[in-house]
Design a protein around this nucleic acid. Structure first.
Lengths: 186, 186
DNA sequence: ACCTGAACACCGTTCAAGT
DNA sequence: ACCTGAACACCGTTCAAGT
């Protein structure tokens, strides 16, 4: 009857996030999460319907975290520099937290990403930034092109796909510079 | 003593490829592979050291298959049109065989992609194509930019990341057109 | 030489029993 | 109201025993 909770939703998500950051989502076991929050695995089902729901909650947090960093990185300089900074922040997050990044951009199976309000508002801000560079006509297409390039680069880098030598940083800046220039104007 | 084999390496890879194409690599069970080739799961260990090795073999085949399609799609037109056709073939493969595509471009864990000779030769041909468009100076950077954009787009499309409406085909052609133009010349 | 059943350790998930 | 041990079905993998 006392029903004193040993843990909480936030506790569980935080522990799961830490574990995923360390070993990736597919290596996450409920037993490990449970131990990290001082409980047994079956108790997790009191707060989450299943394992996938826990992973999804972590993905939502990671998406917000990434958007926050991108917005902070944008700063106040010229618009094209702001756009590049946003892209660099995305790549940077992918390098520093590859497993969390993968959760946002490469969700597996049923774990489709669910974005927060906060996340959504931040993405809108990035959209407006791009609108100032391109004009209103093709903003959606431009955003998709820029994000696709950046994610593709980060994803391939993470997967070890760049095996032919050369300076990968140089390649990123080369592609980013050319693409951002190509997006200018209507 | 008779030792009449019931299956073969090729058999197993073909069955695994079919199963992965249908349900994705992480849903592949050795029991299903074994049943498909008319054997019991433990017998698979006579030909492959572990599950990951089977998945890796399928990935190698998928990589070759993709490169073959890209090369075939290039055709004989103007160089920029050939480059675009190669990118479109990549996106097309990602849409038609998403699970096999993911195996090539988004390998998980230890399953780093191993390319065969045939695959490598085809990639070289694509490189030369790009060199004719860009000149020799930044071919590596250009190839990485073009592949990053195409993979990023295909990956996000596959993950259902383009949720804001708009015509996704138009966005792809928009980005591809601007990027290829931006890569022209030294 | 190859195949097999049985066993092992490890999963996610369910549920009746405890407080 | 929350937590737990036990059980279940399902994994990949190992291995002694079969032919």
């Amino acid at each position: 009857m006392p029903s004193v909770p040993k843990t909480s939703v936030e506790d569980i998500v935080a522990a799961a996030k830490r574990l995923i950051a360390r070993g990736g989502a597919e290596a996450l076991s409920l037993a490990a999460v449970a131990e990290a929050v001082g409980v047994r695995a079956p108790s997790l089902y009191k707060r989450f319907p299943d394992r996938a729901a826990i992973v999804r909650a972590v993905a939502t947090e990671a998406a917000r975290e990434l958007a926050t960093r991108q917005l902070a990185a944008a700063g106040e300089g010229p618009v094209d520099e702001q756009l590049k900074a946003v892209a660099r922040a995305q790549r940077d997050y992918a390098r520093k937290k590859p497993h969390l990044y993968a959760l946002v951009f490469e969700p597996r199976g049923e774990s489709a990403l669910l974005r927060d309000e906060a996340d959504r508002r931040q993405l809108d801000a990035l959209f407006e930034l791009l609108a100032r560079w391109m004009g209103p006509a093709h903003v959606l297409e431009g955003a998709r092109a820029l994000t696709a390039f950046t994610h593709g680069f980060a994803s391939m880098e993470r997967a070890g796909a760049f095996q032919l030598g050369g300076d990968v940083d140089v390649a990123f800046e080369f592609g980013l510079g050319r693409l951002v220039s190509a997006l200018e104007g209507p």
